[in-house]
Structure formats: structure tokens, C-alpha cells
Nucleic acid binder design. Structure first.
Lengths: 114, 114
DNA sequence: AACACATGTTCATGAATCCTGAACATGGTT
DNA sequence: AACCATGTTCAGGATTCATGAACATGTGTT
């Protein structure tokens, strides 16, 4: 992958999560669907980007995952050639209690339409 | 005002509210602050656009109120030369229970920084 | 080693959206 | 009528978004 090891992946600390940034990250159907899938394999599940079968191009997917990571919604780590994603539910629940409880079912509803 | 009576204000029905659209509307600090102010005068309070003293230009304000209205977050009605705004808390609570309870305090926090 | 393949990222381009000041429209006031 | 207050619309420039093509890296195969 491109410069994986060169620049470390940026993950904001729990205390630095911003509400409006998180909402913006969740306000896209594709990203909300990603969050719902990750919530369903939480807490120990990690899913590679490819496993989502999203209806957008590869580069757009890459952008969506980046938005979620930089907002602090997901965590990403590299394992071999794959980038594994997991939900930062603990941090989100601590900072914005109840938000994921509302958002995840909505994401599942989007998944159901695909 | 410009063509106020010509085209009626668009207000989506409660059933047509979309989660991602509402989140997008709430994901901006200025709009979140507007929502918080309206929540504090709910249920019978109506505030004209000018009363908010927002740190953006008049035309940008107009755009923000339009986004909120078209997302179904606020209701607007014209009274004389002023456009009065109120929060659609009943509809939002019915469709997305708990969302405003989370968002409003965050909006108040933004207000406190101005 | 060398080659091919799978997984993701980056870059350049075009499309869509956002912010602003200037001009406009409407209602109320003197 | 003239004037002011409240908001909207329009055109522009700037920022953001989606995509295909090219690239980079890790794994497996010969």
C-alpha cells in the first residue's frame, strides 16, 4: 500500500473528539453503513475494507474510511496487505453517550436496502 | 423579503425525515447553536433570525436556516417582515428518540464559547 | 529471485457545494 | 412617499467530493 509505514495513521485521542466532526462523519449513508457493520462485530471484530462491498469506487471507499478514522469513529491498523477496521465504541460512548445507540440501527436500515 | 409569498416554505413531513440529512444539518457549529437556542425556548418560543447574533454573514445565515428547515429540524413561518423559527422537537423525538437530548447540550457548549 | 496478484493509497480532473458581498424584495414607520 | 429593518437571491471564487489511472506494499507461486 502507499506509504503505510512512512506516516503513521492519525487517530484523535478520546478527549479530542468533536461532536460536529463525528456527526459529519456519520451523516453519509455509506459511512453509516460501515459503522453498522462494525458495530455488529464489536467488540473484537475487525473487518478489512474490502469485506464491505460498498456501492462506490475503491478510491471513494478509501476516502470514507479516512473520514471515519480522522473523526475518531473507527480505528485502523495494518496487518500485512490489509487494513483492519474496528469501531471505537468505548470512546464514543464515553464522550457522546447514546449516539451510537441511535445511529447504528439507522445504519442497519441502510444496509438492508443494498 | 424576496418572494416570500410566491413560493411556500418547504417543510418535510415527519415521515419523510431522513436520518443522514438531519445529522448533516446538525453537524455544523452555527446550526447546532441555532438548535440549542431554539430548544431553550421550546415549546412555544419562536425566534427571528436576527436574534441569534451569529458570527457569519447574513446570506450565510439565510443558508443555514434553509438547511435546517429542509432537513425538518426547524419550522419557519413569516410574520410581517420577520421569519420566525421554532424547533420541530415533537417530530424529531418521534423519529429519532434521544438525538436532540444529545445534540442540544453540545450546541449550548458552542454558544458558551461565543 | 522473479513474477503475478490482492489490497489500498495518492494524484489529477471535473462536479457539486459553501461563503460572501451586492443587489433586490417586502413589510412596517414616520 | 421616503426610509429603514429583515431576509432572500444571485454571481463569484474557494473548498470539498467522487472517480479512474497509476502507484506502493505484502503475500504467494514458480
Amino acid at each position: 500500500m502507499a506509504s503505510r509505514t512512512a506516516t503513521a495513521l492519525v487517530h484523535p485521542d478520546r478527549a479530542d473528539l468533536e461532536f460536529t466532526t463525528v456527526l459529519a462523519a456519520l451523516s453519509d449513508p455509506v459511512r453509516l453503513a460501515i459503522v453498522a457493520r462494525l458495530a455488529d462485530v464489536w467488540p473484537d471484530g475487525e473487518l478489512a475494507c474490502t469485506t464491505f462491498a460498498l456501492p462506490v469506487s475503491k478510491s471513494t471507499q478509501s476516502g470514507h474510511f479516512k473520514v471515519l478514522r480522522e473523526a475518531g469513529v473507527i480505528r485502523q491498523r495494518d496487518e500485512g496487505t490489509r487494513r483492519l477496521n474496528s469501531l471505537r465504541r468505548d470512546d464514543l460512548d464515553a464522550r457522546f453517550p447514546g449516539l451510537l445507540d441511535i445511529a447504528v440501527p439507522q445504519g442497519r436500515a441502510i444496509l438492508a436496502t443494498w
